[in-house]
Nucleic acid binder design. Structure first.
Lengths: 160, 160
DNA sequence: CAGTATCCCAAGCGATACTG
DNA sequence: CAGTATCGCTTGGGATACTG
């Protein structure tokens, strides 16, 4: 446990987890991204499915567009004026592992009898997909102690 | 895009993402779990590093113990009375992919020049660790369209 | 050290109504 | 359909002080 001391001296605000959480870690954003990932892109169905107040949804969408995770794309249905829908950017799609990780945990530990609400398949071969921690030597990490976090080059010591 | 219709008819509350977010998706829990993963297990250092009010930290710890993600373990320093520290259970350790996913996203998209604040190594072989989507046939999914989400056996149609 | 207790405040939520 | 505007209210957060 001596290595714990090492972490105590590092600045906890210099942290990629904290930065990502600050960006998308509020009550609605994960669920909103889930919907967009499933192709639900318009305001009305989003609002109906999330159950969020319209003002809240509008604020979240604006925030995500602003952060570059979503983009507004104009579309037009016959006889209607131009409207907008929200699409994932690459930057937004890169958050998919987070969603998959949340989903997998829910499937494993918070599931009901009926099985997972969503299954992930490899489009190429049809097999089930899961998320795994793998090392550069292709070992799969499963045990509690297989993972060794180390301060990286961007770590900063505490000022005090 | 016709498959979008399929998702519109499914109950959005039956969702493993939503359940996991409901469990750990508040402002402090991710950061708290990050600290515990790094071996910071006692109340005082946790409070100091998170900057959360003591009452809030106590509530989060109790909640996580209650949910079975952490366990209180007694320890004793020389000449002191017995105290408690908080350790990850397996159930808590299983959330690590979520943390790693958040961290990887931050490293990729929200980083500073200095590089990642934390690096992950495989304790067995020392190699760098990353998160990967793999299928049952051991294919690694990398492309944007390799992943095909499908309603699973636990999916429920909307009542209305 | 490891929490409780208290108080106050602000953000954010939910509901509803309104607009182009 | 796709939002804005408004409002009352609860939840939870910050600061501080207290206890075994």
């Amino acid at each position: 446990m001596t290595w714990t001391q090492e972490w105590l001296e590092l600045d906890p605000t210099v942290c990629s987890v904290a930065r990502t959480v600050a960006l998308v870690g509020d009550k609605w954003t994960f669920l909103l991204l889930r919907e967009v990932n499933n192709g639900v892109r318009r305001f009305e169905p989003l609002q109906r499915r999330l159950g969020a107040p319209r003002a809240v949804l509008a604020a979240r969408l604006a925030h995500l567009v602003d952060a570059g995770l979503l983009e507004r794309a104009p579309y037009r249905e016959a006889g209607q004026r131009t409207r907008f829908e929200y699409r994932l950017t690459q930057r937004g799609a890169d958050l998919r592992p987070v969603l998959v990780a949340l989903m997998q945990y829910g499937d494993q530990h918070l599931a009901e009898d009926a099985g997972p609400p969503v299954e992930l398949r490899h489009r190429g071969c049809g097999a089930d997909v899961h998320l795994a921690l793998v090392c550069a030597n292709a070992h799969v990490l499963s045990g509690r102690d297989d993972l060794a976090p180390r301060p990286g080059s961007g770590a900063r010591r505490l000022a005090s």
